[in-house]
Design a protein around this nucleic acid. Sequence first.
DNA 1: TTGGAACTAGACCGTATAGTACGATCAAAC
DNA 2: GTTTGATCGTACTATACGGTCTAGTTCCAA
Lengths: 218, 218
Amino acid sequence: MSPEWPAATSEPGEHHRSVRKRRAILAAATSVFLEKGYPGTSMDEIAAQANVSKQTVYKHFAGKQGLFTEMVSATVDEASGTVLDEVLNLEDSGDLEADLGDLARRQLAAVMQPRILQLRRLVIAEAGRFPELGRAFYERGPGRTVTAMAAAFERLDSRGLLDLDDPQVAAQHFNWLIMSAPINQAMLLGQESPPDRGELDRFAEAGVSAFLAAYGRH
Amino acid sequence: MSPEWPAATSEPGEHHRSVRKRRAILAAATSVFLEKGYPGTSMDEIAAQANVSKQTVYKHFAGKQGLFTEMVSATVDEASGTVLDEVLNLEDSGDLEADLGDLARRQLAAVMQPRILQLRRLVIAEAGRFPELGRAFYERGPGRTVTAMAAAFERLDSRGLLDLDDPQVAAQHFNWLIMSAPINQAMLLGQESPPDRGELDRFAEAGVSAFLAAYGRH
DNA sequence: TTGGAACTAGACCGTATAGTACGATCAAAC
DNA sequence: GTTTGATCGTACTATACGGTCTAGTTCCAA
């Protein structure tokens, strides 16, 4: 029978041993997977880093694959919310160029975190084996942002501040004008020479300026 | 001493056993690596698929890593030349919009080959372990194209057909406006739903039109 | 024809890994 | 304190892989 699970008193099950262990395992898995990649990570190492026996790992998660997908979802969710708020404020902008610049810089900063870059690398590497992984990453991350941005752009178009045919396409173009060069550079060139703040700002400014030349009212 | 290697008569050593074997190994390695990824590929399988003994593999290549890097360089080289020619013709264009559209479509077709997509996935996955791999991929592939394109854009600017500050940046923007959306979609979504011809053409057209709105003479 | 390099087949070594089994131990609810 | 499930530690299974070694065989040029 169910082990008289602690009812919804205060925080539900917040401090129970099982819950703590589960969290520790997920944290350890995140750290090890991100550092060593999926094939380079062993379950023994995860268990060790979580101060947990291997049995416990297998009691909480459905093997290596299951643990991996759970860690990807969790990490993307954790990092995705940041940018979204600012997109929502965009449609009431009084100074479009400045606000687009802000958004661009914040987006770049979020996406170029070493942790997120590494996650992207992992997902791309394993997307062949676990297609649902890539879908989860996209939908919980960039997908949400682009959709929200398209809505904002549509509103800005009817306010007469932008001039566009298809807001979805414009949002994609904005996104990639800002992020493509640095992301692809980072993807291919690995960890060496991570761009610094100033360099990222230049990417952001060049992207915004091209975007406004293409889609701004003249 | 050197085994009296066949001199530079006709095709140099074209049909000698050693050369044939080496080619067979590289071909097998390419096919297996692309299909199963670096860690998923075993030297035994490569040897088997090449109809060659494992010893021979180790006589021709410096282990798994060496074989891998050689296969990446070879594949990128083989696929990179295609686009470059057309870039060079661009600067004399009489109908810029049409020629940019042609170039965009051809570029997309080249980059979106399943073989090349898979190679990109592999390189990204292993860029952490073998940084020189990513550099080779970039320099022999996209790097060359962007550089050539920047030169062409500069000429088009002085002919009064484009209006740009930094040809390098403009070339990057062209590149990414065309390719980012489909490439990143493919990277994250794995093999499922490869975009068809018509879809790619739409990406190309939207990119060219945004590029000309941003950088064309009005 | 013959000499020597290239090649073959497969055993072999050392190591590593995912996942399971099992008895002992712990921690919390009653 | 007793009970009950969670956890521990560790040994174990089964498999796989990179790389080396050996002994015999094939190919090619002279």
